[in-house]
Simulated scan of single mutants.
Amino acid sequence: MEGIEWFIKGEYIQIQTHRNRQRNISQLAQTKVKYIGLYVEQSEDVVAVAGCKYLKTINIYRSKENDFSSWSKVTADTISFKSCKFAELGNMARILALEDLNVLGCRNLERFTGDNSTIKRLIVDGSKKLDLRTLKTFTGVEVLIINSFTQELNLTEIGGLTSVKHIDFIVSEAGVLAYLRDEEGLWFAIKTVESWCSDHKQVV
């Protein structure tokens, strides 16, 4: 993509080249875009984003790449992975500015890995293979929203998330057996069925 560097005044760019693996977006770092939508075709695309100094929001589409270790200096506080192909995602704490993480329609996702402790808000939608126990890697999460999850839910598996203030389970078919800690350090239990999840009930 020759000449992309001329886009110095633009704030938003979306790059979709329909599986063109010959493209080169290495000049992306010379722009001042704040919002980017990127269909990842090769690992070099991820590296190109690492050099962007003005980003606030990143939308990544259909990526098989799950190594974002080069993004430590990326300034975006919100990143969304949409319809990505990876089975694992993790070490989001390496992206120092990141607080909001959205994982949407990533059907192959099975687990979160590594250190994700800096994430404050997490939304997971449509990852039916996800092992809920791996949510424990988000030790600092305050808002947790899980949508379209059809496996049996047992919130004791994520009981170590002591920073959580709000949990939503939306369109989740299974019942819930939850043991959560309230602000005073007391334990309480909730046992319900589908209606609890569908009503988006808040647990504080």
Rank of each mutant, 00 (worst) to 15 (best):
A48P: 01
W71C: 05
L101M: 08
I123C: 07
I58S: 03
G114S: 08
C84Q: 04
E110C: 13
L96G: 00
R121L: 11
S80N: 08
L96Q: 15
A97M: 07
V47S: 13
D45E: 08
N59I: 09
S70W: 00
L109W: 04
I79N: 04
F81E: 02
S80W: 04
I79T: 07
N59R: 14
Y61G: 00
T118N: 10
N66R: 09
I123E: 14
L98C: 06
G51C: 03
K53Q: 14
L104D: 12
E99W: 06
N91Y: 06
A50N: 06
K82D: 05
S83I: 00
S80H: 07
M92P: 00
F112E: 04
R111N: 10
T78S: 14
E44T: 13
M92H: 03
V103N: 05
K53R: 15
A76W: 01
N102D: 08
K120E: 10
N59F: 14
R121E: 11
N102A: 05
A97F: 02
F86G: 06
V40E: 01
F68M: 08
L98F: 06
T57V: 12
K53C: 10
D45T: 03
A48Y: 01
R107A: 14
I119P: 03
K53Y: 00
G114V: 09
K64P: 05
W71K: 11
L89N: 02
N102L: 13
A76N: 02
G114W: 05
R62K: 13
D100K: 14
S70Q: 11
Q42R: 15
I58Q: 07
K82W: 10
D77F: 10
E110Q: 15
L122Y: 04
G105F: 03
T75V: 01
D67Q: 09
E99N: 12
K82H: 04
N59T: 11
N108S: 15
A50H: 06
V40H: 03
Q42S: 13
K82A: 00
K53G: 09
G51F: 01
L98Y: 02
N91C: 10
K56P: 00
S43E: 15
E88H: 13
I60F: 05
N116C: 09
L104M: 10
L122P: 04
F68H: 01
W71M: 10
T118K: 15
